[in-house]
Simulated scan of single mutants.
Amino acid sequence: MEKIALLRDPGYTPSCSINPILSCGSVMNTHQAEVFGFPNPLLGVAMFPLVLATGVAVLGGIRLPRWWWLGLQAGTVFGVGLVHWLFFQSLYRIGALCPYCMVVWVVTIVVFSYTTLYNLDREHLRVPGSWRPGVTAIAKLHTAIPVAWLLVLTLLVGEAFWTYWRTLL
């Protein structure tokens, strides 16, 4: 909605433009905001309902086929790759962060982490006759993996914008 308002009125200030660093408007006006020729949020509008439906199906006891899980895994790999490319672009090329985008980054990393752990545990990612990693050990760290990952990204944000953050102290 913010993008549509910005297209209608170039002088519009999005509600998520809080300061020079947390500024959706600065991000929305770049080519990175439309990497595939349309606004990036449309990817989330299309894909997150699939993830939600998968979660509801699993909680409902529906057993989904292996091809579904492999497709979801491929989608989350694509999503986490795109998120990291956008993260890099935001920090080191655009010089601003979109709060809504950051929420999507967190959700995508968590969805990728848990999809991967689920697929490893159910052996959807296992090639028959191949070595199987210590999934039990990985599963015990299920929260630590995304938390550590997000902590590293938070530290990178802090470092990239340190000159601005320290003016707030």
Rank of each mutant, 00 (worst) to 15 (best):
F36L: 12
F38Q: 10
P39R: 11
P39Q: 10
N40F: 12
N40C: 07
N40S: 11
P41C: 07
P41H: 10
P41E: 07
L42C: 13
L42D: 02
L43A: 12
G44L: 11
A46D: 00
M47W: 14
F48E: 04
F48S: 03
P49A: 08
L50D: 03
V51A: 11
V51M: 09
A53E: 06
A53W: 08
T54N: 13
G55S: 06
G55E: 00
G55V: 00
G55C: 06
A57M: 13
V58G: 05
V58Q: 07
V58T: 02
G60L: 04
I62R: 09
R63Y: 12
L64Q: 08
L64E: 10
P65E: 00
W67P: 08
W67Q: 13
W68Y: 15
W69I: 03
W69Y: 14
L70T: 00
G71Q: 02
L72N: 12
Q73R: 02
A74T: 07
G75D: 03
T76A: 05
G79M: 06
G79T: 05
G79V: 01
G79W: 08
V80W: 13
V80M: 13
G81S: 06
G81M: 01
L82P: 07
L82F: 10
V83L: 08
V83M: 12
W85A: 14
W85S: 10
W85F: 10
L86T: 03
L86A: 07
F87T: 00
F87A: 00
F87Q: 01
F88E: 12
Q89I: 00
L91H: 14
L91N: 13
G95A: 07
G95F: 12
A96V: 01
L97V: 15
P99E: 02
Y100W: 08
C101E: 07
C101W: 15
C101N: 08
V103R: 10
V103L: 10
W105C: 15
T108S: 11
I109C: 09
I109R: 04
I109L: 10
I109W: 11
V110N: 12
V111M: 05
V111L: 09
F112G: 03
T116G: 02
